[in-house]
Design a protein around this nucleic acid. Structure first.
Length: 290
DNA sequence: ACCCAGGGTTGCA
DNA sequence: TGCAACCATGGG
């Protein structure tokens, strides 16, 4: 891959295992809009990005190398060798081939911690389109403005911006019974009880425990935050889809989530998080396990 | 009218 | 420890 700045854009030339549509639509993030085929705008890290892809070339519009190096390179997990990961997974179990080859351009994003935490608290018992809608509503109401060619775009609110938002106001954003959960998350982040840097350094087990001390954060939501925002790539979130898919692949009868997580850890090891994402996207698109 | 969604908490055995 | 009712909301 070659990377350079040209006419105010940053170009990633000849990318490997990188498909902007698969990356954004695979269910790991919610704050983006499709503009046209392989062309999107997205919000993350308090920033707006307009991005498109033609074949193996990706264009990050109106940004510079400094910003790319500091923000988007890490966000898109550019440095990681996904072809190697895919080979490792297929070596572990060649039945992963179908899912991997269906969406070979998936990458796991390194997303903003707070936005990921709130987004996945919202995600419980909701479908993806509705999660997206609520994330956009929260941003419209409480986030900062960014001027994009005269058009006003709203960022996801910071912990400070949500600090004084009441449960009732949150309910007006249609978060329903999750309102007190969001409140608790905001309070714990603002007070420093939940600290991103600590979570990154204390290890997976302890990180999981700390996240689950937030009301409304159980093992699944915590797993998603760990995998999609905190760099714990061996984490294996099990939702209704992953339960069905794993039962379809490895069991002949309903299995406990706990056992599925243990099996994934045993089989996929440090690659469990990647396996999860290939399987989730494939299983959901194809209705595996009905 | 009924069921389900990238679940979690509470209550009760 | 295990299980099920319940939680808001929208879409099929």
């Amino acid at each position: 891959m070659k990377c350079f700045e040209k006419e105010g854009n940053v170009i990633l030339e000849n990318v490997e295992a990188f498909d902007i549509e698969e990356i954004l639509e695979c269910g790991q993030c919610f704050h983006f809009t499709k503009l046209s085929e392989k062309e999107y705008e997205l919000i993350n890290y308090g920033r707006y990005l307009h991005v498109s892809q033609i074949d193996k070339n990706v264009i990050l519009y109106k940004t510079d190398m400094e910003t790319y190096e500091r923000v988007w390179k890490n966000y898109f997990d550019v440095e990681r060798d996904y072809n190697d990961i895919k080979h490792k997974l297929i070596d572990i179990d060649d039945r992963l081939t179908t899912a991997i080859e269906a969406k070979p351009g998936i990458r796991i994003l390194n997303q903003d911690f707070f936005e990921t935490l709130i987004s996945f608290i919202i995600s419980q018992n909701k479908q993806i389109p509705h999660i997206k809608k609520i994330v956009h509503t929260l941003s419209d109401r409480y986030g900062s403005e960014v001027d994009v060619d005269g058009r006003i775009i709203k960022l996801f609110p910071t912990p400070e911006q949500l600090k004084d938002v009441s449960e009732d106001e949150l309910r007006e954003c249609k978060v329903g019974f999750r309102a007190p959960y969001i409140r608790d998350a905001v309070v714990k982040v603002v007070s420093g009880v939940i600290d991103e840097n600590e979570l990154r350094s204390i290890g997976a087990g302890e990180c999981m425990k700390r996240l689950m001390s937030i009301k409304g954060v159980g093992e699944k939501v915590a797993s998603c935050v760990m995998l999609f925002a905190l760099g714990y790539r061996s984490t294996f979130p099990v939702d209704v889809w992953m339960k069905r898919i794993m039962e379809y692949m490895y069991y002949d009868s309903p299995a406990k989530k706990e056992d599925i997580v243990a099996l994934a850890s045993e089989k996929y090891g440090e690659y469990a998080g990647y396996a999860q994402q290939y399987l989730f996207y494939y299983g959901r698109e194809n209705g595996i396990g009905k």
